[in-house]
Computed example of a mutant assay.
Amino acid sequence: MAQEASYLAAFLVGLMGGVHCVGMCGGIVGALTLGLPESIRNRVGAMMPYLIAYNVGRITSYAVAGALMGGVGLIAANAAALREAQLVLQVVAGLFMVALGLYLGGWWQGLAQLERAGGVLWRRIEPLGRRLMPVKTPWQALGLGLIWGWLPCGLVYSVLVWAIAAGGMVEGALLMASFGLGTLPMLLGMGVFAATLATQVRRPLWRNLAGGLVVLFGIWTVGVAVMAPPAGTG
């Protein structure tokens, strides 16, 4: 039951983090949309398969990254006392959630350092995406989404830290997939209603609300780990 709650929470973090997605990924979605033939671009029904394929690729990459991080966490936990290691990882994940909330609210930009560090990998794989432009088929959109999933992003990196504490590769993949599904409404909306949506979610009210809720969730996550009974009790 606790694991299912984590997936729901990851979905909600993705949903609330949509205000950040507009800034980070809005330009990419716009480039994809504007690069489509006019006969497709002017019809939502014709454009939707491309946007869905693009986002399926992105979420698949998130799930792969989550599986890798979940595996790392499982190895670390097995190398130490399992329960104690999981609680430590949960505290770290909660602190990253607090940092993420501050980042989303625009109150602290420390996670931008993580994005710059991730740029090292991105510079190596980004040229692959250029070869798929302009997008002419949903399959190309899927391939571009698979690459886009590795775009340096403090929001994604924070949830990846959470995936380390998920308990294993499958759990890490499901956690990141849940998060990716949470970002889906905003990014699909960006593809269809880019200008209107971007204007609304960039308002300070939405950023502050999303950031504050994620901070509270991070504090709750740390509190659950700190208040957990010691191993062998209860």
Rank of each mutant, 00 (worst) to 15 (best):
M1I: 09
E4M: 03
E4C: 06
E4I: 01
Y7R: 10
L8N: 00
L8P: 05
F11I: 00
L12I: 12
L15D: 15
M16W: 09
H20E: 11
G23I: 08
C25H: 12
G27V: 07
I28M: 14
G30W: 07
G30F: 04
G30P: 00
L36Q: 07
I40P: 03
N42H: 09
N42A: 11
V44Q: 03
M47V: 03
L51W: 02
L51Y: 05
L51S: 06
L51I: 01
A53S: 15
I59Q: 10
T60V: 15
S61H: 09
Y62F: 11
V64K: 10
A65E: 09
L68E: 04
M69C: 06
M69L: 10
G70L: 02
G70R: 01
V72R: 02
L74I: 02
I75P: 00
A76D: 06
A76N: 04
A77D: 04
N78F: 05
A81M: 10
L82Q: 11
R83Q: 13
R83P: 01
V88I: 13
Q90V: 00
A93W: 01
G94T: 03
L95C: 08
F96Y: 05
Y103F: 09
Y103V: 07
L104T: 15
L104K: 08
W107E: 06
W108R: 07
W108P: 12
L111M: 10
L111Y: 07
L111P: 02
Q113T: 13
E115A: 12
E115P: 02
E115G: 11
E115V: 08
G119R: 15
G119P: 12
V120R: 15
L128V: 15
L128C: 13
G129D: 15
G129V: 14
L132C: 12
L132F: 11
P134D: 15
K136Q: 15
P138V: 00
W139E: 13
Q140I: 07
A141D: 11
L142Q: 13
L142D: 14
G143W: 09
G149S: 15
G149H: 14
L151V: 13
P152W: 15
G154M: 10
L155C: 12
V159F: 05
W162H: 08
A163N: 07
I164P: 00
A165G: 07
M169K: 00
M169V: 00
M176L: 15
L181M: 13
G182K: 00
L187Y: 08
M190K: 09
M190Q: 08
F193M: 06
T196V: 02
Q200Y: 03
Q200A: 05
R203G: 05
P204E: 00
L205I: 07
N208M: 08
L209G: 04
G211A: 10
G212R: 01
L213I: 05
V214E: 05
V214A: 04
V215W: 00
V215A: 05
G218F: 05
A225H: 01
V226R: 02
M227W: 07
P230A: 13
G232A: 08
T233E: 13
T233F: 08
